[in-house]
């Protein structure tokens, strides 16, 4: 699938959060968006998945502007896993995942055997098939997030938007979740906090600061000591490990003081 944004602008409560963001994702690309808190990562992703309407610019999906699709159609094309998923009611895991089938359903249509098959298949993909009958809210954060991913998979979309989905997850679940996503081989746009993880999974990374893209390219091109300094005002060393993976090591203030002394 092809997602393209051109000059996305967003003004919220009088301040300009996004100042013309253009990027594109095609085919099986895994796109990462990095940037400090408040840089506009989430806002930008929300413009793509239609929770916010950009004040300027356009989002094109497969060459057609987003507004020309019905909400249902976009939900058939892109699924979303975001960070906050707390529900005030007791749903079973199966109920939650089954909701992923709703973009494909007419208002009055009942769920059929095919839907239940897809639910099981999606749960199996995230390794949570045994949890089908459990109450969603009784699961751990990592398990819940995998269920939400299963719901997104049940939508059977050609692209996935991840809005810091691995927040609050321990490292095992972070890697597990992203491995599952990487294996799907679909278009992915994801916001990241952890640069090491972003570098490990992304084909392309865009760095956002104050609502603008300050750098874009492969992880190696983008993630440099200079850029980290610019984005986060933190000193870091970027090197490659024996597997050829980027490895970012930060220098906290007390360590640097030690060096100087």
């Amino acid at each position: 699938m092809n997602i393209e944004t051109s000059g996305i602008e967003m003004i919220l409560g009088g301040s300009q959060i996004l100042k013309g963001i253009s990027l594109s994702a095609t085919g099986r690309e895994f796109i990462g968006i990095i940037g400090p808190n408040g840089s506009g990562k989430s806002t930008f992703l929300k413009c793509i998945y239609r929770v916010l309407k950009p004040t300027g610019g356009a989002v094109m999906i497969d060459g057609r502007p987003l507004e020309q699709y019905r909400v249902k159609e976009t939900a058939q094309k892109l699924a979303v896993v975001s960070q906050h998923n707390y529900y005030n009611f007791e749903f079973s895991v199966e109920d939650i995942v089954l909701m992923g089938r709703s973009p494909h359903k007419k208002t009055m249509e009942r769920d059929n055997a095919e839907d239940y098959r897809i639910v099981e298949e999606s749960l199996a993909k995230v390794g949570m098939l045994d949890y089908k009958g459990r109450v969603f809210s009784s699961l751990s954060g990592g398990e819940q997030q995998r269920i939400i991913l299963a719901r997104a998979l049940a939508q059977k979309t050609e692209s996935l938007i991840l809005d810091e989905p691995t927040n609050h997850l321990d490292i095992k679940y972070q890697l597990q979740l992203l491995d599952i996503v990487k294996k799907l081989g679909i278009t992915v746009i994801s916001a990241f906090h952890d640069l090491n993880i972003a570098a490990a999974y992304c084909d392309k990374i865009y760095a956002l600061k104050s609502g603008q893209i300050v750098a874009g390219g492969t992880p190696e091109e983008v993630i440099t000591s200079r850029l980290i300094r610019e984005l986060y005002e933190v000193d870091a060393t970027v090197r490659k490990d024996e597997f050829g993976m980027l490895n970012i090591v930060y220098h906290p203030l007390h360590v640097r003081k030690g060096e100087e002394a």
Partner: peptide
């Protein structure tokens, strides 16, 4: 009874419902 899917989604909130194709 026929609206169960949308009633379910209401409990997930507006944002999630939009990503599931329902305003």
């Amino acid at each position: 009874c026929s609206q169960y899917r949308i009633l379910n989604m209401m409990l997930l909130g507006d944002d999630v419902s939009i990503t599931l194709g329902t305003d």
